[in-house]
């Protein structure tokens, strides 16, 4: 395949090259037209090296540029382009799914059974793990706070600091990250398997909207159950901190709890629960979308699952910051 700009000649000397590839509307390394290989055969897409293109410009000019091209500057640019394109397609698809999700919300009562089932699997079955992680989160934050406080801050403020940290940040974010790993991954794996085994197509042809049947119950239950889990986490983490305060820091339970109550605002609690709800929506939505996007067998399911956890975790942390700047004015 030849670079079409060769014939135009406006950058003839550096033709089949970096500039050529960057400016031509037809990229230098463009795939060749698909070759029909019959059964099971894949289309071949040979890479055309600049040296095979005619006419060749002076070697002293082309050598460094060709070297550049070979060191994959072109590939880099093209790769960036491809990534941007993929991101745009991803966000677009996600937006469409959110639109369909909102459209299916009025039917939520008819799907109450599905929602309750998801609330059980997402919420109740995550509880043991959440309790375990929360006890230690509370315990370590009490220990570390005590370590920082010694000789500077009176220990009766231990409960205040630890309680605030837990209710506002630690419990919602850590719970969300744990649930993203546990539930987000399983949603993506389940829906991904359904996608590659054509079960989602089967739903479609039975006249059952997969967004209403699969996505809506999961997102709704995420929005409801995460705050519930966070409430448990708040409680258990403060309990963990209390144990450390009493047993290791030699504080009395009343002093610690009075510390917690001091400066305790319900609005902090509500903010934490609101955040949790948003995180729950993010986890379910990304899990579902990754599942729907799955292609190519078991390997594809694995890829979607990993992607679901990574993307949800990143979005949780970013949105945590954004929500903090909106809700907590400095």
């Amino acid at each position: 395949m030849k670079c079409p700009t060769l014939r135009v000649g406006h950058h003839k000397t550096i033709c089949d090259c970096v500039v050529g590839a960057a400016l031509c509307d037809r990229p230098l390394y463009a795939r060749e037209k698909p070759v029909w290989r019959g059964r099971g055969g894949r289309a071949t897409s040979p890479v055309v090296r600049p040296s095979s293109l005619q006419p060749s410009p002076p070697a002293f000019l082309i050598a460094p540029l060709a070297a550049l091209a070979d060191t994959s500057l072109v590939e880099l640019i093209r790769d960036i382009g491809r990534r941007i394109l993929r991101l745009t397609v991803y966000v677009g698809g996600l937006t469409v799914m959110i639109g369909r999700l909102l459209a299916s919300l009025p039917q939520i009562l008819g799907s109450a059974r599905l929602v309750v089932y998801q609330m059980l699997t997402m919420g109740v079955r995550s509880l043991p793990l959440i309790i375990l992680t929360s006890v230690f989160t509370g315990a370590v934050s009490a220990w570390q706070a005590a370590y920082q406080f010694q000789n500077f801050v009176p220990m009766r403020f231990l409960g205040t600091a630890v309680g605030k940290a837990i209710v506002i940040e630690l419990a919602p974010v850590l719970t969300a990250l744990v649930v993203a790993g546990r539930v987000g991954a399983s949603i993506a794996a389940e829906l991904g398997t359904m996608r590659v085994t054509e079960q989602i197509d089967a739903l479609e042809v039975m006249g059952v909207d997969p967004v209403r049947y699969l996505v809506m119950p999961r997102v709704t239950s995420g929005a409801i159950m995460l705050p519930v889990l966070v409430l448990f986490s708040d409680f258990v983490a403060i309990l963990g901190a209390l144990v450390v305060a009493v047993l290791m820091v030699n504080l009395s339970a009343t002093t610690f709890l009075n510390g917690v109550k001091l400066f305790f605002h319900m609005s902090d609690m509500y903010a934490g629960l609101f955040k949790a709800s948003i995180f729950g929506i993010i986890i379910s939505l990304i899990g579902c979308y990754q599942g729907f996007q799955t292609r190519g067998g078991a390997e594809g399911v694995g890829r979607s699952t990993t992607g679901a956890v990574v993307i949800a975790s990143v979005l949780i942390l970013i949105s945590d910051y954004l929500i903090a700047t909106m809700l907590f004015r400095v």
Partner: peptide, 8 residues
């Protein structure tokens, strides 16, 4: 469907 596509 070719593979059945039963909901498991």
């Amino acid at each position: 469907f070719q593979g059945g596509a039963l909901f498991d």
